[in-house]
Design a protein around this nucleic acid. Structure first.
Lengths: 346, 346
DNA sequence: TCCCGCAACTAGAGCGGTTTAGTACCGCGC
DNA sequence: GCGCGGTACTAAACCGCTCTAGTTGCGGGA
């Protein structure tokens, strides 16, 4: 015999399938004595529910979906994703909710997966990451009527729940600090230009120019890879009017930038201050250690999971959770600019 | 109306459910004309298969399971896992196979999840990671008769397929190199002592003592965290007879170790050589960059996925794929030991 | 004593597919 | 004209579970 079904149990105990179902799901309709016998036999026969059969009846899938439209090869590089995943798992696994993970080519494929998984009752809800500037995914998810939470900035995601940090405020706090140190030439090695938070950070920097009397404030977009981070840094440091401080949109790029500075003979922090927009083990263990905007990505994952579970439990609820703005953790890579040495010195 | 079912399509086209099923699955039993009409209507109605219903009938789940018994908080720290996951995804998503991911407390819980997902037809197979010294999971998976692939060392996993690298050989190549440079006191900051590959590496080091005439060759087990890696390094560098070279079982720990060396005034590589047993962006961007055993973890993930898909397609097949032994990539963190400065100098 | 109400259970429909057994029809050879 | 074989289809069983609408039996109130 293959795996036992409730019919097998029913036969063995001498009751109907219905009674077994009631007993196993802890609902009224059977006497305590019968329930005990049924549970006993179920244990004995090593019975386990068949979630597909349950799902057919419209029950929860006890799983959430995370579809990522990025080249799979970049996932491993960014500590952010791994941390987020960890945080999500920590929270979800407490409720025995699994995660369905898939990496796809682009947003279009992503939407198709949303469709498929939704109509197949494969998951109870989705986590949407990397919100873009004009993002077709919001409308698609809303149309499907499936619970979902957007990880990203405020507003503009229709009726979907969201968890977000204030990127603008965070960027402003960095620039304020650098300006207070005396920096007037601040550069920004940004992430993918299509992402909303990239745009928001770039705008925040631009908006600071007048307010803080900056001389220069350029943002160079990249693809988040260490290679492009290094290349952007080389570009910036090769200019006639070299920036005295560079803000990186990720820790990996900041690290790469630090490497380039070393290779070009630019000392950090004396000649160049470096700030990373994400914190992880990386920024702590380098020499000099890197000043960064620290947010607890692991905790963030937990919050995202929380909101999603909430929305799944009560689809009417609309939550917008603003997480704490990343705090600036000052380490050894930032200092006042060396006066008079602002020009090319390669 | 909710999502359309094949019954809806059948009604609209004016045929039976069976005919629709045949048409949609490309099997004989309907004329080309009818098939075309059915496909047309299905497209029009935006129909999508309900995988739960299919699963009930015994079809593939088009998903594989990865259950990890580690504290979720450590997942984000290790680039290895993220890389592996990326590689797996890259391969799986090409076949539209998703991954079911869950983090659990211990092996026992892990086995229970294997049971549940198997009997629920939730996945078609499993990837088993972190094989342990006496591992109850092998027997459990074999008993369930579900396809699975073990990521780890050779042999000892019963009839399960496996993908493995030769840890022993890798460790020997490192120690040989260090000995050739002149090192006689080599220490090893190992990973979790319960893991097979940890044991294998420790044994390889021990076995080298006589062969290479080493004076000292101690292995300190850790939990893979940067904290314990740092602590172990402190312990080693505080000894009267300090090692001149340390091999770390992960890149994160090597990085932490490099930090500790800096903090204790021990220069790398002049006074201490450092080798990491895993390569990633981390080892490349530090100063000095870290000599490491490089293996393409992303590719490894792909290979694991390949073998699993193969075993799923043909459950009779038994594959044991030995991947290339990690190559030693020499960078700036290794050098001959400074003569006469082998003793305490803090 | 009779009937009501409730607890404890059963029977069976339904979820959305797949698959098998069966049927209607057609052209063909003899 | 009849049987034969093949094609195109239909009807319904089936997968494992849930859940609703009954059915039975029993105790208690009037």
């Amino acid at each position: 015999m293959g795996r036992p079904t409730i019919a097998d149990i029913a036969q063995r105990v001498g009751v109907s399938k219905g009674a077994v179902s009631f007993a196993l799901n802890g609902r009224p309709g059977v006497s305590e004595a019968t329930r005990a016998r049924i549970l006993e036999v179920a244990r004995e026969m090593n019975w386990r529910p068949h979630s597909a059969a349950r799902a057919l009846g419209g029950a929860r899938a006890e799983a959430v979906g995370l579809v990522i439209a990025r080249p799979a090869s970049t996932l491993g590089v960014e500590p952010f994703f791994a941390q987020l995943l960890s945080g999500l798992q920590a929270r979800l696994s407490r409720q025995q909710v699994a995660m369905h993970l898939l990496v796809v080519e682009d947003s279009e494929a992503e939407i198709e997966v949303y469709r498929e998984w939704t109509s197949a009752h494969r998951v109870d809800g989705f986590i949407l990451v990397d919100p873009k500037v004009r993002d077709p995914r919001f409308a698609a998810l809303e149309e499907l009527g499936v619970p979902a939470v957007v990880l990203g900035g405020p507003g503009r995601h229709g009726a979907l729940a969201s968890v977000w940090a204030d990127d603008r405020e965070a960027m402003l706090s960095v620039v304020d600090y650098l300006a207070a140190l005396g920096h007037r030439r601040v550069a920004h090695v940004a992430g993918l230009p299509g992402l909303r938070h990239t745009q928001r950070r770039m705008r925040a920097l631009r908006d600071s120019v007048k307010r803080l009397g900056l001389v220069d404030a350029v943002s160079l977009p990249t693809d988040f890879s260490d290679a492009e981070g290094a290349a952007a840094t080389r570009t910036l440091l090769s200019r006639g009017s070299r920036p005295t401080a560079i803000v990186y949109d990720s820790d990996v790029m900041a690290l790469a930038g630090l490497g380039v500075a070393g290779e070009m003979g630019v000392t950090v922090p004396a000649e160049l201050s470096i700030v990373a927009f994400d914190d992880s083990v990386l920024t702590r263990v380098t020499h000099p250690s890197i000043t960064s905007l620290s947010r607890d990505t692991f905790a963030l994952g937990g919050q995202v999971a929380d909101v999603l579970l909430e929305v799944i439990a009560d689809p009417g609820a609309r939550r917008d959770l603003k997480t704490g703005t990343p705090r600036l953790v000052v380490r050894q890579s930032t200092a006042p600019p060396a006066l008079g040495r602002r020009t090319k010195a390669v």
